[in-house]
Computed example of a mutant assay.
Amino acid sequence: MSGALLHTVFDVLAWLGAAAAAYGLARQGLRFPAQSFALPYIAALVFGAGLGAYLFGSANLWLSGQSGIARSVEGALAGGIVAIELYKWTAGISFRTGARFALPLAVGIAIGRLGCYFAGLDDFTYGTPTTLPFGHDFGDGVLRHPVQLYESAAMAVFALFYVLAVLNRNAFVITNGFYLALAYYGAQRFLWEFLKPYGTLIGPFTLFHLLSLSILLYAGVMLATAPKARPLHERAVA
């Protein structure tokens, strides 16, 4: 099976995994704001995520001296955040609606990054050369950091942490899970960017370094201003 086909297979598995995670949360009795299920909300999310994915993915490709069009999961995440915040502002929605996306986000990235790994050199998500024993040869005889696996493992750890928090009815984690996921994702992604062959934008920092810091800052502000979590006997999150 070709790398591109494997990537597509894992993309589908990532969506299925995210859907299964969302279903699992519903089975735990957690209720989420109805607004996050509304068609206009979903439309804004899909549009923003799609635009961000191609905008940032392609920009990073060009900054790295490559031609063509590319997608980025981090770009999709940033685009989706901006689109939803704009939608909420225009719709007069003042409360938070992202809680139900925490586990699906972590599971989706953990699975999806495996597809990036199997896609090989054509995917341009591999790491810089390394002499470490777990370096991977993607087909050109050079051992590189398998950064896709690093990110997949990191997000799997967050997913496990979140599941344990849900099972223990941790009100803060359940209510603010999406922003915790964003903060964790931004921090780990910032670190892995030092192990990628991307073109720099400011000093040693790539476009995704700056995007990771932006996501981390957004998550930090949202966590710092988070309202008090609702009592768990209500089994509701906002």
Rank of each mutant, 00 (worst) to 15 (best):
P231E: 07
A226V: 05
R235I: 04
G199Y: 08
L213E: 03
P197Q: 07
V221A: 12
S214L: 13
P204I: 07
F205R: 01
G220D: 08
P204Q: 07
F205C: 05
T200R: 10
Y218I: 06
P231G: 09
A226H: 02
P231K: 12
T206M: 06
R235E: 11
L211A: 02
A229C: 11
I202T: 14
K228I: 13
R235G: 13
L216S: 05
L207N: 00
F208T: 04
R235S: 12
T200Y: 07
A219Y: 02
E234M: 13
A224F: 01
R235H: 14
H209S: 05
T206Q: 04
T225C: 14
G203Q: 11
G199E: 08
G203I: 10
G199D: 06
L201C: 10
I215V: 14
L232C: 08
L213Q: 03
A224Q: 01
P231C: 11
F208W: 06
V221I: 15
T225V: 13
S212I: 04
K228S: 14
A226G: 05
S214K: 01
R230K: 15
Y218H: 03
I215Q: 01
F208H: 13
G220R: 09
L213R: 02
P197I: 07
G199H: 06
Y198K: 09
T200K: 12
P204L: 05
E234F: 11
P231I: 08
P227D: 07
L207V: 00
L216V: 08
V221W: 12
M222F: 11
V221E: 03
Y198D: 15
T206Y: 04
P204M: 06
P227R: 05
E234D: 13
R230D: 13
M222S: 11
L211N: 00
S214A: 15
P197H: 08
A226R: 02
P204R: 03
G203K: 09
L213H: 05
S214I: 01
T200S: 13
I202A: 13
M222V: 08
S212D: 07
P227V: 10
P231M: 10
A226F: 03
T200E: 11
A236V: 12
L201K: 06
P227Q: 07
F208M: 08
H209W: 03
R235L: 15
R230L: 15
T206E: 04
H209A: 04
L217Q: 01
L232W: 08
